[in-house]
């Protein structure tokens, strides 16, 4: 039987997650950083869906348990949308004060 193994999906998800993490660390524009965080959340969603499908089909987990994964994905997407709203609001507010949205320039407070 041909098909794609679970490892391929998890590998792709890990690649997406790593790309997101690296992006957050090296990029300087808050909006791009935020896009990288969204990429991380998408990696999470992919992992949830592939685990759910795998558990249901291969391990014979009950439908109730297998539904946990897709349910989680819906919540992750809803929360990510709320985060977008708040995040863009904060970036707008800071832009109105400083006309500058580069995290290297936003350094009044030093740890």
């Amino acid at each position: 039987m041909n098909g794609v193994p679970l490892a391929a999906y998890i590998g792709l998800s890990m690649f997406m997650f790593t790309t997101g993490v690296v992006g957050v660390v090296i990029r300087r524009n808050p909006i791009v950083i935020f896009m990288c965080i969204e990429l991380m959340l998408n990696a999470v969603n992919l992992a949830f869906l592939s685990f759910a499908r795998y558990r249901y089909a291969a391990d014979g987990v009950s439908v109730n348990l297998a539904m946990n994964g897709p349910m989680m994905v819906i919540f992750v997407m809803a929360v990510a949308a709320a985060e977008v709203a708040v995040g863009l609001g904060i970036i707008m507010a800071i832009y109105r004060l400083k006309e500058e949205v580069d995290v290297d320039e936003i350094n009044l407070i030093k740890g």
């Binding site: 808050p30 965080i37 685990f51 989680m72 904060i90 970036i91």
Partner: peptide, 30 residues
């Protein structure tokens, strides 16, 4: 400016941490 800057830092790092937290849940679920 200080308040806005702290909001931006908190938001970016908090969302970043949420990503790790969720990915952890995904693996525990798996």
């Amino acid at each position: 400016k200080f308040s806005q800057e702290s909001a931006l830092k908190y938001f970016l790092l908090g969302a970043f941490a949420t990503g790790f937290f969720l990915y952890g849940i995904a693996f525990l679920y798996g």
